[in-house]
């Protein structure tokens, strides 16, 4: 591709902007710190200083979904909103960057980080790795992170300021994060949760934590890929209508 330089430049711009944003940088460390803290705290309840499976399930669930949701919905969304607020998005778009290059450049680092940090969470949680199917975890992580990043792009299109992006991003995050977590308490929520990509993630980590074999079912695959396609389509429709920024 002759235009890799442009893609690389956008990704680098995004990287420089995000790495200067304290809230964004601290976020992943907080998630990892939280998982680590809980592990230390609750280990004392389990046999020989090990976490009870139910605790491990909660910990993984919370850590992984939080990581996926914050990085995508919030990090990607606010980064675009920031560019609108500071009037640099238009500058990029009038410097020969295409919509596609901006899209990929914007989600590249957040996506890679989300996947990497998911593995970090797994490691920090101290789960017995023999209970984990790494390829499946990797695959599900990758798709879930991608969906979350695309939703972040939609948040970015809708928002005009960073404040705005948070206002749109947080409710989404609460739905996608809390429904699977609360799914343990209510049958209704559990059913809805099955249709959310974060719900699929939760099911997977539950199985790992409980030492059960996780078999990814057709419905789960349909949910993951279906939501990826839906979010892409929503993004495309919105992009076609007004571009990244309404005039």
């Amino acid at each position: 591709m002759g235009n890799m330089n442009k893609l690389a430049a956008v990704a680098q711009i995004k990287w420089l902007c995000m790495s200067q944003n304290t809230a964004v940088v601290i976020g992943p460390f907080m998630v990892i710190g939280m998982v680590w803290g809980f592990k230390i705290l609750y280990s004392s309840f389990g046999p020989d200083g090990k976490l009870l499976p139910v605790m491990m399930a909660m910990l993984l669930n919370l850590g992984v979904t939080m990581n996926i949701c914050t990085n995508g919905f919030l990090m990607v969304g606010t980064a675009i909103a920031e560019e609108k607020e500071k009037h640099t998005l238009r500058v990029l778009m009038t410097s020969s960057i295409t919509g596609m290059q901006y899209f990929i450049g914007s989600i590249l680092y957040p996506f890679v980080f989300t996947v990497v940090i998911n593995f970090a969470i797994l490691w920090v949680s101290g789960i017995d790795m023999s209970q984990v199917s790494v390829p499946v975890f990797f695959l599900v992580s990758v798709i879930a992170s991608l969906i979350s990043c695309v939703i972040g792009m939609i948040v970015g299109i809708c928002a005009s300021t960073q404040m705005n992006a948070n206002l749109i991003g947080y409710p989404l995050m609460i739905v996608f994060m809390m429904v699977p977590i609360l799914g343990n308490m209510s049958e209704g929520l559990r059913r809805i949760s099955g249709f959310l990509f974060t719900g699929v993630v939760t099911q997977m980590t539950d199985c790992f934590a409980n030492g059960m074999e996780y078999k990814i079912e057709a419905l789960d695959i349909a949910v993951l890929f279906g939501e990826l396609i839906i979010s892409m389509l929503v993004f495309l429709v919105m992009y076609r209508k007004n571009g990244y920024e309404k005039d």
Binding site: L16, H87, T88, T94
Partner: peptide, 17 residues
Amino acid sequence: YERIGVVSDNSGIYEKM
């Protein structure tokens, strides 16, 4: 845009860079 230059009425810069 590789052959023209555009400065709009509110062109921004990356302030943190």
